Amino acid sequence: MDTLRIYIGWDSREDIAFQVAKQSLEKHASIPVEVIAIKLPDLVDQGLYTREVDPLASTEFTYSRFLVPHLAGYTGWAVFVDCDFLFFGDVAELQEYMDPKYAVRCVHHDYRPKETTKMDGVPQSAYPRKNWSSFMLFNCAHPSTRQLTPEVVNRESGAYLHRMQWAQDDEIGELPTGWNWLEGHYAKPETGYPQAVHHTRGGPWFKEWQSVDYAAEWLAEAAEYEAKVKTG
């Protein structure tokens, strides 16, 4: 693999979350990576995204994440990840999970959120395979993945997309829990760090969420990013 394409969801309300996810991912990567922001206004301008606004959608990339195989030209492998991640692991490790028999690989959470609202007041909902789609390793050339055309992504329900009904169950491979470690749900490892911490309840970019696990590490990463911006 020459370069691993990483698509990170971008939300206009949480740019700093995107920047920290991107910086921490690139910092730990030992292979070339290309990080691409999934920006809804750009996809709308290109005519790739035509869905009506969904009041229940918690982010601007709730549905557009499923355009990744199309954006990648239905070739090779690509990663989608939410913006509320902090990376400690090397994405080069994902290469060992690139088995062509799978359409997609992800952490198979059994997740039932305790909170009734998300970090910015959006109602929290529970559904099968919740959070599976927040970190996906796509086999973009797989026949099932190729079904994710812009027409399908714009037409189909959230349940169809997020529950990965576009693939057969045996085509949805697993990734180790550390690649989508849900803060507040999983116990912290006794030593070391998860590969990727997901602040799905609320992240340290909100003042009321600065006591969550790995908040200090996130804030340090954010300070490093902001210092780089100031110095040009």
Rank of each mutant, 00 (worst) to 15 (best):
A196N: 09
A216P: 01
K114E: 14
P100Y: 03
H28T: 07
Q147I: 04
G47E: 06
F61S: 13
S134V: 09
K118T: 13
E226A: 05
H199C: 09
A37S: 14
P150H: 09
M98T: 12
G89E: 10
M1N: 11
E34H: 11
H185G: 03
A29S: 14
Q147T: 14
W209H: 14
Y225E: 12
D99F: 03
A21L: 00
E26P: 00
Q23L: 11
H70Y: 15
V212K: 08
W179V: 06
S157D: 13
S12H: 12
E96G: 00
T177R: 12
S64L: 09
K101P: 01
K118H: 13
H162N: 15
L56S: 12
P143K: 05
H108A: 04
W218E: 07
P176G: 04
E14Y: 12
E226W: 07
R51F: 02
V91W: 09
A222G: 14
M164Q: 15
L4C: 04
A103F: 03
Q124F: 06
Y74S: 11
Y214P: 03
S64M: 03
E221F: 03
E151A: 14
E226S: 09
Y49C: 01
M1T: 10
W181A: 03
G76A: 13
R65H: 10
Y193T: 15
V20P: 00
D90V: 06
K114G: 15
L137S: 06
H109P: 06
T191L: 12
L25I: 15
F87Q: 11
A220W: 02
V153S: 06
V81S: 11
N139D: 07
A215M: 10
A21T: 08
G192V: 00
K114V: 12
Y7M: 06
Q168W: 00
G76D: 15
W181Q: 01
Y160S: 02
E171Q: 14
M1F: 09
Q46V: 01
R163M: 15
G76W: 10
E174Q: 04
Y49G: 00
T177W: 08
E34M: 04
V212M: 10
K228W: 09
S30F: 07
K228A: 14
E217G: 01
E156N: 09
F80A: 04
